[in-house]
Design a protein around this nucleic acid. Sequence first.
DNA 1: CTGTTAGCGCGTTCAT
DNA 2: ATGAACGCGCTAACAG
Lengths: 341, 341
Amino acid sequence: MKKRRVKLEDIARKLNISIATVSRALDKNPRVKPSTREKVFKTAEAMGYMPNQIAKSLSSGKTNIIGVIIPRYDEPFFIEVCRGIDHYAREHNYKILISSSRNSFEFERENLISYERGIVDGIILSPTHETETFTHIRSIIGKGIPVVLFDNIKEEVSGADHVLIEDDKASYEAVEHLIKTGRKRIAFVGGIKEKKVFQDRFKGYLDAMQANQIEVLDELILHCKSLDREFEDTEINEFLSNLPEFPDAIFTCTDNYGLLTMKTLLKMGYRIPDDVAVIGFGDLGLGEVFVPSMTCIAQPSFEMGQKVAELLIQQFNEPVDKNHRKKVVKLKTELVLRDST
Amino acid sequence: MKKRRVKLEDIARKLNISIATVSRALDKNPRVKPSTREKVFKTAEAMGYMPNQIAKSLSSGKTNIIGVIIPRYDEPFFIEVCRGIDHYAREHNYKILISSSRNSFEFERENLISYERGIVDGIILSPTHETETFTHIRSIIGKGIPVVLFDNIKEEVSGADHVLIEDDKASYEAVEHLIKTGRKRIAFVGGIKEKKVFQDRFKGYLDAMQANQIEVLDELILHCKSLDREFEDTEINEFLSNLPEFPDAIFTCTDNYGLLTMKTLLKMGYRIPDDVAVIGFGDLGLGEVFVPSMTCIAQPSFEMGQKVAELLIQQFNEPVDKNHRKKVVKLKTELVLRDST
DNA sequence: CTGTTAGCGCGTTCAT
DNA sequence: ATGAACGCGCTAACAG
């Protein structure tokens, strides 16, 4: 005894008018007599009418859904970006379908393909570290589906908008701050080398060191290989435990690296910032709570989400022109000084 | 010059067979001759055919999308649940459409209604603290849409599955642990009173105190009112600063309360756990990093997500029977002992 | 094994 | 101002 949904036809029959009129009435089309519109609205309400979004989408070719592909859920940065996307999207009557590529290129491709089946009007994607080739994205764009990329963009994809921060510049600034406050032996803790953002952050570190004529020591550099929280902890622990001579500052490439570093340092008996200064990257809330609070490069994550959504929705309203050069937006970061430096 | 998508008809025409056959062939329907199936697959591939999910959905009445409504994004618990949902859902060929009710009953209702438009096959929802009436949920269920509720369920909704933890029992256990380790003046830091989970956690605290004949002092109790990280900090700060006599333990109702409490204590010069012990609730990763690491009630968030998804997908396969009593699943929590107690 | 036909629910001409 | 009819792309029931 499942109730069949009320549809336009039901309303039409009840009122002895055509489906088309009902449709127009509900659409507030001015060409329908006010009195009938009234009637339609009332009976629709009374009968509990609810438009069928799927049918609408099939007919209109629009789903009002934005597909979002992030490398992983358990990184506050991506969630914050999603929150930004959601905020902007909802204001413009779009919903978001999120999926994680779980740091795997294959998953990224699969997700993209599943979105290609017409369930989303456009796609927002942040490439994984494994993503070396971009043909899967170009293929989607080739089919006329709007795409916006953000963070970790290894290769510019024509036809897609890009939103990012200047990772190298931000790192440069942070390292320079360490140098200016008298630090000389500055260690670097980064992520897997395959990830563009980590390459850039490393570059910023190197540039700042070089610009200030400070020798870069390999022994002070760690590129974490793991993608898992637990192992990050182990890697950092080992790195710090095996240093021949101790650094007086450590620049780290994520908030989590920074916190794990501080934790390990405190456990080893070092004082922060007296013995060692620490800087994190991201500023997603935790750095402020830790004792001592952590100096961070603040990345505008929420804003990035908003911007990304804005660009995508803008594309929806542009004439289809695949040769149109798309935008590259660079957002500003900020060095937030706290107790760890 | 936008390319039209290839559809079944195109393949059919090219092969001089009917649309139905093409459809069946791609469906691997055994009733189609292997040789034609081969041909169909090859030309489909060659022509770059991609099924239209919307059309499929309209025709089949299934979208393979699960709607998820959480009170907010910026709480790791909900994200972890979503991750669990995503994992289970994907294995069963479902995608998830997430939306946040932003701690507002109105938003919750709106989201629910938008899902009612047929874009999702079922709904997973965690009610906000504002949600006092459940008619909006019952209405959805009445229309035959499967619903599963999790966390913070103030009122049992017949026809919906429920997944939760025993908040009171978990709190009881945590407070009892404090008592057994010799703590006597035990403070309580909870969240807004309107939220069922906080009510239950408070109840567990009261029960444990009473069972051990320890007097409950109003001055040692804080129910945070704010829903915003910043203000939580302020509230806890003020609470701790104005205590007439200091507690020797503080039981807090979220990880974040626990961390903020520890931060404030350390800043005030107290030693943890020597002067004061602290316990958090959730165990979503941060407690392990803090120095000292935080003892927590571990809530199985990821598992909760998986369970919730499992129940929903199970409902999809059940015969429609609105009077069928639905399941209530209670997941186990665990007290994880660390350095803060 | 394959083709024909009739929906799925709504938007949208094209008439009237 | 309103109605009839077709299309969106695919599935499924019924024939043969």
